[in-house]
Design a protein around this nucleic acid. Structure first.
Lengths: 177, 177
DNA sequence: CATAACATGTAATGAGTTACATGATTAA
DNA sequence: TTAATCATGTAACTCATTACATGTTATG
């Protein structure tokens, strides 16, 4: 149940509207906690009902646009949640199931599937590296920046890990043929 | 929606009852696709209703125990599903949200939380290494074994990755103090 | 015969996804 | 004035989790 806290964090970084947050989730926070706009609107409404954030209609803005801001109670809630333990999140990756199924039912046509997935990991890795070069090229100015860099590096390692694993899987399947 | 296919795979590897499968999920398949016994019973019932598996009451067994076996239609379904593409599974890790929240709301008492989580990753890594030494000490006998080893190695790399990241996070927070 | 362990389920809830609905503003 | 885009939402559904219910068999 981290979505409300991801939203609080995003709104502390910069206040914004529902759709704007959805956009930001597609680019940054969503890389490790994704959410659709439907989910985001529902959570924003809930956070406002609970008095953690407050919305204001933007004067000279399109349509029904509302800008959300975090209230002191929201800050407090985030600080309290921050130091809670959670369970190790399970991997839940269908590819692992596929690899195991392949081992169980014998050779099928898995190589192209792995190849396409490998490509997507390579793309994501490249994206992350572009962001890294752009945002963290110099030595970190603040501890907060160093933390943000570490978060990105976690994503980079994760993708690099999959690139290695899937490359090995391909080599293995090729050798088997 | 991989649980039914994880179950088919497990039942091809060895037929078994619901609770037995739940136990196996806790030890092996569950490391990358976890499921509770409630979920497993529900899925087994659905798979049987759909004619992919068949259960039989075990004669000299405890209580109402049913042993499930995969039918030819189940094999076919698994083979067909095996070569489907899926999206990159999102990371969805609350720890990333916490790190980002820490960067946003300034220094709080995050270090102990990270330390506890680091320990759990180290434990899991140690577990995996024991399994690796036990099951994959020698050169792989078959391609299927090589695949199963690769799956375990994916888990090992994943845990090692987190151990590194969290160690760095701790170093970073210590330095900031 | 009481208790632990085995075995299978139901019910309620919550989180996440997909499809659809609606209105306002801008640009062609 | 119509199409595209911005913006906010509802409804229905599936998946996963949590809590609870129930019955069976072995063991002390």
């Amino acid at each position: 149940m981290s979505l409300p806290h991801a939203l609080l964090t995003a709104l502390i970084e910069r206040p914004g509207s529902g759709l704007e947050l959805a956009g930001r989730f597609d680019r940054s926070i969503g890389y490790f906690w994704s959410a659709t706009h439907q989910q985001i609107y529902r959570e924003l409404a809930r956070l406002e009902r609970d008095g953690l954030i407050k919305s204001k209609r933007e004067a000279d803005a399109r349509g029904r646009k509302r800008i959300y801001r975090v209230l002191p109670a929201g800050h407090a809630e985030l600080k309290a949640w921050l130091v809670l333990d959670d369970e190790l999140p399970p991997l839940r990756d269908a590819m692992m199931v596929r690899l195991r199924a392949e081992a169980a039912v014998g050779p099928s046509n898995l190589a192209p599937v792995i190849r396409r997935r490998l490509e997507r990991h390579q793309e994501k890795l490249a994206q992350y590296r572009v962001i890294e070069a752009r945002d963290f090229g110099a030595a970190p100015a603040t501890d907060a920046d160093a933390l943000r860099h570490l978060i990105l590096q976690t994503g980079i390692r994760h993708e690099a890990n999959w690139v290695e694993v899937l490359s090995e899987a391909l080599a293995l399947l090729d050798r088997a043929k």
